[in-house]
């Protein structure tokens, strides 16, 4: 049986208490929400917090508020979002992403905040301690070399969150609270450049909520590539948002994920799309440009060359789905 290492456990009632505890406990403390990412990591001994601060009693971090904009409590379960009829209608891309996360059982437990703060993944890393010992560990945990890219100075572990690219595409912001106060950052600013420093969120900050602006007439889609219809993390994913002016693109955001340590905003493709109709030719070219930003390496399921090809196909399909 895979077992957890020992830890101290706190379950405070307010976000402020969480922030105070985090400040007091120092960097060896971690927040646990649903535990569906953290507990497996702890069982495999690649995250070993001495203290866990659970959000399960922090009611203020729950709930979905909708007017023009949408606010999601960070500690809302994925399942609650999935079953929120109005949310599904208003933000179908987000719904698709949330609904594609792992399995219904896991979505009953996992939270949206946890999904945003998900540890990056790599199949040299997401293994038991004994296994990692057999490969001499790697840079992300206990080792010195990146086995995915041995000459690399950074870690290429993959941001594998389904919701993150959608939040970026929708222009969402994240609000972080620490004992020093509160700050709100654009979704993209949350993510670091490297699979080790994958979040810009400080260790003493708790993500309290996500704000998604009114989408106006813009529409969005999310497409995920994975081996099986359940369980599997994305090995390539695209979130696309397009606002049309007549049949032409007024504004768009294209975000790729699961093809590198950080979600990729496809600026070049977005610039290319501006003012153009979503013709076959245009979507194909935009997808090609977008695909350039994808740098999948051989550290997930499926071959990296295949993922690189398929991310273009899926980007094109996403844009096609957004035609008037």
């Amino acid at each position: 049986m895979m077992r957890l290492p020992p830890f101290r456990y706190h379950a405070p009632r307010t976000a402020a208490e969480v922030a105070t505890l985090l400040a007091g406990e120092g960097p060896e403390a971690m927040i646990v929400a649903g535990g569906t990412d953290l507990y497996p990591n702890m069982k495999r001994r690649h995250q070993m917090p001495k203290t866990l601060i659970s959000l399960r009693h922090v009611d203020e971090l729950r709930g979905v508020q909708m007017n023009g904009a949408v606010r999601l409590g960070a500690n809302e379960t994925l399942r609650a979002l999935e079953w929120h009829g109005a949310l599904k209608e208003r933000l179908p891309a987000l719904w698709t992403a949330v609904q594609s996360i792992s399995t219904p059982l896991l979505r009953n437990m996992g939270t949206i905040g946890g999904n945003i703060c998900l540890d990056t993944r790599c199949n040299y890393y997401n293994q038991n301690w004994e296994w990692r010992r057999a490969i001499d560990f790697c840079m992300k945990c206990e080792g010195t070399v990146c086995w995915t890219a041995p000459s690399s100075s950074i870690c290429w572990a993959v941001n594998s969150s389904d919701s993150v690219p959608v939040f970026i595409a929708l222009g969402a912001t994240f609000t972080l609270v620490s004992h020093e106060g509160e700050r709100t950052i654009p979704a993209l600013a949350m993510f670091g450049e490297d699979g080790i420093e994958y979040l810009t969120k400080r260790k003493d900050e708790v993500l309290t909520h996500i704000d998604i602006p009114d989408q106006g007439t813009a529409r969005s889609v999310y497409r995920k590539v994975r081996r099986r219809g359940a369980f599997d993390f994305p090995v390539a994913a695209v979130a696309a948002r397009v606002a049309l002016d007549g049949d032409r693109v007024a504004d768009s955001t294209l975000v790729l994920n699961a093809v590198g340590p950080k979600p990729v905003v496809c600026e070049e493709a977005m610039a290319y799309l501006a003012g153009k109709p979503l013709s076959d030719e245009v979507v194909t070219e935009a997808a090609r440009l977008a695909g350039r930003g994808a740098k999948p390496l051989d550290n997930t399921d499926h071959l990296s060359m295949w993922r690189k090809k398929v991310v273009q196909v899926e980007t094109r399909r996403a844009l096609e789905a957004l035609r008037p």
Binding site: M1, M2, R3, L4, Y9, G34, G35, T36, Y39, P40, K43, R44, S54, R56, R79, S102, T103, P104, L105, L106, N108, M109, F231
Partner: peptide
């Protein structure tokens, strides 16, 4: 079957909701 949330064998109901008992503390 895995203790890592990867198989569903450990499913139980918590307040009627199916959850993975391998990814939840007794405390919780």
């Amino acid at each position: 079957g895995c203790e890592l949330g990867e198989c569903g064998t450990c499913t139980i109901l918590v307040d009627g909701v199916p959850r993975l008992s391998c990814l939840m503390l007794g405390l919780e």
